[in-house]
């Protein structure tokens, strides 16, 4: 119907991104685009560009004064979340259960998670691809095939300046701040027990930041984000 040009895949991707930002896609199409954003840097970059291009059109909507209740509701919801984030004794108990599971079995689960996907559908598996925020190039994969250990697997070998180190962080949707998972050597696989954290959840943030040797002095990320991604549940 449209003359010329639109058969080009990059053109199609760009129109899809544009329609996503415009808002004309159906609920299913929107969900499909959203699911692709984390793993398709080109699509994400196209969406980002459309967000920037169209942003000023938001000024066409007449401002509307919120009811006096709205801020109080927001404030209350945040307070409630803050309480939930702190681990309670309940999940320490659950941890005790996890500890009953054989360590050898866990290691095998981590190594063979993909193979086990089909044979143990009851376990939740997570996968995260960490990409460089600047060029969206994947650098690491985080793989978790049980709720208490994750493996960080390098896809290449990053250059880290002398006196600096990569630090690994994670943050669940409802957490106040990221938590350090330790220091990572470029090009080397790294395994982390998640014993002090709540179980993994979908859309959990993982990132590697560049910090001074020895790690962030503040306990929070201070350096630039080198790689970032969110967990997706693998069925």
């Amino acid at each position: 119907m449209t003359p010329g040009s639109t058969d080009d895949p990059s053109q199609l991707l760009d129109v899809l991104a544009g329609e996503y930002v415009l808002g004309t896609l159906s609920a299913e199409q929107r969900a499909a685009v959203l699911a692709r954003l984390d793993r398709e840097p080109d699509l994400r970059a196209a969406v980002d560009r459309w967000e920037a291009r169209l942003l000023e059109l938001t000024t066409l909507a007449e401002p509307q004064r919120p009811s006096t209740r709205l801020w109080r509701r927001i404030d209350r919801s945040i307070s409630e979340q803050a309480r939930q984030v702190h681990p309670t004794s309940r999940w320490w108990k659950r941890l005790g259960l996890w500890q009953g599971v054989s360590a050898a079995g866990l290691a095998a689960t981590v190594l063979l998670s993909l193979a086990l996907l089909t044979t143990r559908p009851a376990t939740t598996h997570y996968l995260v691809v960490l990409v460089a925020p600047t060029d969206q190039v994947p650098g690491w994969v985080v793989q978790a095939s049980d709720a208490r250990t994750i493996a960080l697997i390098p896809l290449g070998r990053d250059q880290v300046p002398e006196g600096m180190t990569l630090q690994f962080w994670t943050k669940g949707e409802q957490w106040q701040a990221p938590v350090s998972l330790g220091l990572v050597k470029p090009g080397e696989q790294y395994r982390v027990p998640l014993r002090d954290l709540p179980p993994l959840e979908p859309n959990q943030l993982f990132e590697l930041t560049l910090e001074k040797a020895g790690g962030s002095p503040t306990g929070r990320p201070t350096g630039p984000v080198k790689f970032i991604g969110r967990s997706v549940k693998v069925i």
């Binding site: 967000e51 919120p66 979340q81 925020p133 990221p178 990320p221």
Partner: peptide, 26 residues
């Protein structure tokens, strides 16, 4: 409905502020 959505959006802004990446946009 609009207020419900702005409520949810502010919670999301709060919880995801750490993931904001200035290289991707304003």
């Amino acid at each position: 409905m609009a207020e419900d959505i702005v409520h949810d959006a502010f919670i999301r802004i709060w919880t995801r502020a750490t993931s904001f990446d200035a290289t991707r946009g304003s």
